[in-house]
Design a protein around this nucleic acid. Structure first.
Lengths: 121, 121
DNA sequence: CCGTATCCTACAGGATACTG
DNA sequence: CAGTATCCTGTAGGATACGG
């Protein structure tokens, strides 16, 4: 493993596709108004669809369902259906999701840094 | 400092505005196709406008200038103008930017996790 | 060299009604 | 309960030409 994740050789180097692709993939995971928030919620407990809805009052059905589907496809979360009556569907972080979680949990800290009002030099 | 950045009290808790606001702010810093990449580039050296252009061949003038302006406004980077001939303009991370850098440098690792092909349970 | 100024398009995100 | 199916809108991002 390299010491520095963004190691470019010299000042005139073009961004390599490989380096940039990792960033794009990372952004795909967390981008959008709700994706990162969903991941952090599911980092604490497995939750059902209706429980997620309660925690995101502002998001529409279509969007929530779509984001969940996207996160499943990306391999961040898993969807488990229990054929009970009434139907129960639970969402849980995958192993990859749990691996990424410690890094993603630092994101609010970024927000904290830029809300603070100290010298901006 | 709390052990857990996203600590909700119980399962029926609504997301507090404060918690979600931190996430929104963090996303504002890194979202968009180029913002995070720009920050990581400037985490290595101070760069001039033309040097940034060379490293982002695919981005248009308007977008690059706009993203830089946004990052200045957010307090992530600083813009220094040197009244030479020809004109020189340099972009550098602010103190806040440097504070956030170690966390942001972990983002490519997220990309790496989800490019790997291991069991996705 | 270091950017604006215009114009344009696709798509993220939302409101609402309906379904297995 | 756990979602689709439609329809609609704003804006992020891009192409290109011009300006200090």
């Amino acid at each position: 493993m390299n010491a520095h994740p963004m190691m470019l050789k010299d000042r005139s180097a073009q961004p390599t596709d490989a380096e940039y692709a990792l960033i794009r993939k990372a952004l795909e995971i967390i981008s959008g108004k709700w994706r990162l928030y969903l991941i952090l919620l599911l980092g604490e407990h497995t939750l059902r669809y209706s429980e997620l809805r309660q925690r995101l009052p502002a998001v529409s059905e279509k969007v929530l369902a779509g984001e969940l589907k996207a996160l499943v496809l990306l391999g961040v979360i898993r969807r488990d259906v229990f054929a009970e009556m009434p139907l129960r569907v639970e969402y849980t972080l995958t192993q990859k999701g749990r691996l990424a979680l410690p890094i993603l949990q630092q994101m609010p800290q970024i927000g904290r840094i830029f809300n603070e009002c100290f010298d901006a030099t």
